[in-house]
Amino acid sequence: MASRAATLVVRPAPRASRGLWRDALSRLRRNGPAIVGLVLIAIFVIGAVFAPVIAPYDPSVGVLTNSMQGPSLAHLMGTDLLGRDEFSRVLYGARISLTVGVVAVICGLAVGMVVGAVAGGAGGIVDTILMRFTDVMLAVPGILLAIAIVAWLGHGEVQIIVAVGVSYAPIFARLLRGSLLALRESDFVLAARSAGASTPRILLHHMMPNALTPMIVQATLALATAIIDVAGLGFLGLGPGDPRVAEWGEMLTDSARFLQNAPYLIIFPGAAITISAIGFNLLGDGLRESLDPRLKR
């Protein structure tokens, strides 16, 4: 009892802060749309991880006599032309979409950050050369670049990762370079230099934490488009290339000609793509708001 009274007395009027990341987390927890996004993503992640447990059927084995059945209790999302369970295929499809999407974005992020940090840190001629190169890459639509790369490297998950990753790298490079350049001109960096901080210290300790938050937001938003890109490649026949592997984009292609009599074959994988993309979008927007300490409350 005594301790409770004491806590009431010393409670400060404005909340004292406990660190950048912990504050961001507590703000994220109070952000409704971000929580919805997080829940949507969690559903897909759980579905993907536990697909072998949850899926009622083998996604690659069909019973031809069950071909093209509408949704029922036995087949929640119906069956496809080869009699495979659509629900199981959507579940397994989440595995491909999420892993390929996440790994591709991480690769793009890694390459983009190195290029952006070198360009923004070095400036001058190095910056000019690197940024002209990224400009050229950005001028080509991302999906077109990805198509070209898959066409060049051939089918396969690794190829898709490379293709999507390469198309994202210039976006991250440009973003990081832009924020580093703006930060370099900022008053607090000048103040840190006048306090005697060294150049590496200013770059890592003062500029990076400020430059990182937009990168995290952008990466989360990029996951949304990466999932769509992966499905897009699959839809265009540039997917994993193994007909037994369930991939949302390829599932759309396979079912497109049955749009009239079996719309559910389009609706479910389409919804999976859309909803997972929306999930990452909501989370990305929520992170944007939570990671900026100035937008507190």
């Binding site: 950048l20 008053d187 607090f188 230099r193 005697g196 901080a197 003062h206 400020n210 300490p293």
Partner: peptide, 28 residues
């Protein structure tokens, strides 16, 4: 340059015009 860093913020300190932007927003 390294000798100069020992001077900056130590023998000579500096304060600026804009208190709103001269502190790093992400640190207490």
């Amino acid at each position: 340059e390294s000798e100069m860093r020992e001077i900056r913020g130590n023998a000579i300190s500096m304060i600026f015009q804009e208190p709103m932007t001269s502190l790093n927003p992400v640190f207490t």
